[in-house]
């Protein structure tokens, strides 16, 4: 292999757009700078070329993510995620308060049920309100506390029961401050039309109120519980499951009804959460699954290194794939907003 060919091979590490711009020129400089009779590249040149390739990729990714469509998507994701986390945290406290209001003196029978769900729900609601008002940085700062709590909670659950079933809220919560910290020219409220905001509010109310409605109307008394992995929760009655599904479908409707440029980005951004949910709820069942989670006497064993690697890498890799497909699609067939 000639020196020219080796350099051409090394330059293959650069992004295509960068190569189109500089490849021939750089090869000329590298060959001009080579000593007479040199057959192999110097280690310093190899190191500089590989380092330059990494920097070029990072800059390219940074440039792609800095476009307004990604900034809008980050704001909208921050708002929707904060509302979903509010729903997740508020369901039980709201049920408890509803039962108090309906003259059940013990609520659902657990005296500390309002802690920490109540304050956590309030925190996510404040984050959502700030995000809706366009105060992204303030919302992000508050969201850091909620995200830290979700991470600690999943770590505690793993320490006690070796389970990561509830990892998805921690992943979603960790994304909220990151998304809301992105500087954007307009708020999520400005990006979403008024009817979508109304739909989001309805989705939140329906999802939060589902257990209360089912319990207080007695609608689920005669139905057998559903133990599913498809509803973000377990052991719910049929009516509650239907209400929760309706709430989540309304959230999905908001995302799917946005313009293509925004919708594809929102879908790409939720990939890490979706993959985590699938892996932890379906992939890590105790029997006969792709990522079998073995147990002794019903207590799951600790996850193996391979399982941890899959849990960490799969969401990141599939997010990167989703973004690459999105950019390739838009590059080859420009979309209209």
């Amino acid at each position: 292999m000639t020196l020219h060919q080796v350099y051409r091979l090394l330059l293959g590490c650069y992004p295509r757009a960068y190569r189109r711009q500089y490849e021939d020129e750089m090869i000329g400089v590298l060959l001009d700078d080579a000593a007479p009779g040199q057959r192999r590249p110097l280690a310093r040149d190899v190191s500089a070329l590989l380092g330059g390739a990494v920097r070029a990729h990072v800059r390219q990714v940074g440039a792609r993510f800095s476009v307004e469509a990604w900034r809008d998507a980050a704001q909208v994701l921050g708002l929707i995620a904060a509302l979903l986390l509010f729903v997740h945290a508020a369901r039980v406290p709201v049920l408890h308060l509803s039962m108090y209001a309906q003259s059940y003196p013990d609520g659902i029978g657990e005296p500390f049920v309002l802690w920490p769900g109540g304050p956590l729900a309030a925190l996510w609601l404040v984050v959502a309100v700030f995000a809706a008002l366009g105060r992204g940085r303030a919302a992000a700062a508050i969201a850091v506390g909620g995200a830290a709590y979700e991470v600690v909670r999943v770590a505690e659950a793993y320490g006690q029961y070796s389970t990561v079933r509830n990892l998805w809220p921690a992943v979603l919560a960790a994304m909220v401050p990151l998304a809301l910290a992105v500087r954007a020219s307009r708020s999520a409220t400005a990006v979403l039309a008024r009817w979508r905001l109304g739909t989001l509010a309805a989705a939140t109310v329906v999802s939060v109120g589902a257990p209360s409605v089912a319990m207080l109307t007695g609608a689920d008394d005669s139905t057998s519980p559903i133990y599913g992995t498809w509803i973000f929760t377990v052991g719910v009655g049929r009516v509650e499951a239907i209400l929760l599904t309706a709430g989540y479908l309304l959230f999905a409707l908001v995302i799917l009804s946005t313009p293509t440029v925004l919708r594809l980005r929102l879908l790409a951004l939720v990939v890490p959460v979706g993959v985590t949910l699938l892996l932890t709820r379906v992939g890590l069942k105790t029997t006969g699954t792709f990522l079998e989670h073995s147990s002794h006497d019903g207590v799951p064993d600790a996850l193996t290194g391979a399982q941890w690697s899959t849990l960490v890498l799969a969401p990141v890799v599939l997010f990167a794939v989703a973004v690459a497909i999105l950019h390739h699609r838009e590059h080859s067939r420009p979309q209209r907003a």
């Binding site: 711009q21 400089v29 310093r44 500089a48 380092g51 070029a56």
Partner: peptide, 14 residues
Amino acid sequence: VDLRAGTLYAALDR
């Protein structure tokens, strides 16, 4: 300062 081509073009691009 002995710049290499990879470093030079990263700087020129920026």
